[in-house]
């Protein structure tokens, strides 16, 4: 069989915080797309599962100098010394060399939650309960994403189910490897403000590559050197400053 040349892409995102209104479309669209179960009755902000979570962040000033932005925070897809990969004792996490997507295999996961501790972005979540939907809703799950089981960690994988579908489609049409992402993750697709741009950072001509180099674009906790592939943009200085502050414990 002929060996097809594999492209080395780096899938990434640029999120414009100045555009985000905090509507929550992306959060719900993500949960529906990726078969994330509704909260267990006792679940809280700490124990719930939100692959994509929008954090309201304020400037800490008193009314009326108060200002706020909404920060959509998903797995930042670290490209260098990826913390969750380094700590996983099970090899359940890895960086895909062709896409740069940090993948998590729930079936391999042991549930030790080292990765959750290691993740500087709190982008990993643990299944404290069985994934449970109200009776009848199971029939409406997305067949392209497998539900996870109790006792494993999970996180955003840039809607890998959609990448699979795009690959299937491309192969059926007789195309070779899809070089640039021929799909849009659910969050980017659902954003009414078009604040999320997704694409291949390695493709210099792509919007996402151009925007990632734009003025006032930054990454969270870039001082850690993990090279996240999710970029943010804000014209507000306090937002950019906040990005490199370690979260208060």
């Amino acid at each position: 069989m002929e060996q097809t040349e594999q492209s080395k892409s780096r899938y990434g995102m640029v999120v414009d915080l100045d555009k985000c209104t905090g509507c929550g479309d992306c959060v719900v669209a993500c949960a529906i797309e990726n078969n994330v179960a509704p909260a267990e009755q006792k679940a809280t902000e700490r124990t719930g599962i939100t692959w994509l979570r929008v954090y309201p962040v304020t400037n800490g000033e008193a009314f009326p100098a108060h200002d706020a932005v909404f920060v959509p925070m998903m797995c930042q897809q670290c490209g260098h010394h990826t913390p969750c990969v380094s700590v996983c004792p099970q090899n359940a996490v890895e960086v895909d060399p062709t896409t740069g997507i940090v993948g998590q295999i729930p079936q391999r996961c042991l549930g030790c939650r080292y990765c959750m501790t290691a993740c500087p972005f709190h982008a990993r979540y643990f299944n404290w309960w069985d994934p449970e939907w109200p009776a009848g809703t199971e029939a409406q799950l997305n067949p392209d994403v497998a539900p996870r089981m109790r006792g494993v960690a999970e996180k955003c994988n840039f809607c890998h189910g959609r990448l699979h579908a795009a690959r299937t489609r491309a192969a059926a049409e007789g195309k070779s490897n899809i070089a640039s992402p021929a799909y849009t993750p659910a969050c980017a697709e659902s954003c009414p403000a078009q604040a999320i741009v997704f694409g291949d950072l390695a493709d210099e001509s792509s919007d996402v590559a151009r925007l990632s180099k734009a003025h006032d674009t930054f990454r969270f906790l870039s001082k850690l050197g993990t090279e996240p592939k999710v970029y943010y943009h804000s014209a507000k200085e306090w937002v950019r400053k906040m990005a490199d502050q370690s979260p208060a414990v």
Binding site: M1, Q3, Q6, E94, D96, P97, T98, T99, I101, G103, I105, Q107, R108, D144, V145, A146, N157, H160, G161, H164
Partner: peptide, 13 residues
């Protein structure tokens, strides 16, 4: 054999 052993997510969803 075909050097297609890239990533878990290639075959898992």
């Amino acid at each position: 054999e075909r050097h297609r052993d890239d990533s878990c997510l290639d075959c898992h969803k």
